[in-house]
Design a protein around this nucleic acid. Structure first.
Lengths: 96, 96
DNA sequence: ACGATAGGCAAGTGATCGCTTGCCTGTCAA
DNA sequence: TTGACAGGCAAGCGATCACTTGCCTATCGT
């Protein structure tokens, strides 16, 4: 569970999740070009690959080899732990 | 918003939130002893203070000076952004 | 078969992070 | 008033992190 939060701590990884929410089964190169085109980020291919590996180890992303392509798919179920641990409730009124 | 995820990336900070969910308005020393007694963690007072400062800058914790005490209170509302960004949905069935 | 495409492995680097150490400020009680 | 208590400030250190670079493997189309 600790890894899920660490994975979400990086902005590039959060954007990758955004893109995978929009469309499933995207390749590494597709995600690289989305980062560049839509978000102005130009990390190297390896950097993005490492990010996807981190996301995969937390269960937030699953991947499937199909020929020479590796298709990446989001799985949001680990996120349920986040709000389950600290349920969102109205904040205590401020005294000052 | 980026800071919220970074704040949650640390286990000690997550435990601090756990303790603040159980009881509001706790001092630095109270939280220090809870870390030691209940969780076997013995970071220095300054370390815990720095963690609380991080949580405060993200809005996850609010604090109030009362005499020589500084009382810390949780505010879970920033957590709503997490699940709002990537709504939890059933995962795509695995093909392999 | 061969070049192009999609991806992987591993070492190295600079920046950030969590934490400690030492000293200082402010508040309360005896 | 003075000592104990609660907390703050700032420099420094080691570990982790994000990223790059260089080279390698595997698959597809022509």
């Amino acid at each position: 569970m600790a890894d899920v939060f660490k994975a979400l701590a990086d902005e590039t990884r959060r954007i990758l999740l955004d893109e995978l929410v929009e469309r499933d089964e995207q390749t590494l190169f597709e995600l690289c070009s989305k980062l560049a085109m839509k978000h102005g980020l130009t990390p190297s291919r390896q950097a993005v690959s490492q990010h996807l590996e981190v996301l995969e180890q937390t269960g937030l992303v699953r991947s499937e080899r199909r020929g020479r392509y590796k298709l990446h798919t989001i799985d949001t179920t680990p996120l349920a732990q986040v709000t389950a641990r600290w349920p969102v409730r109205p904040p205590r009124p401020q005294t000052p």
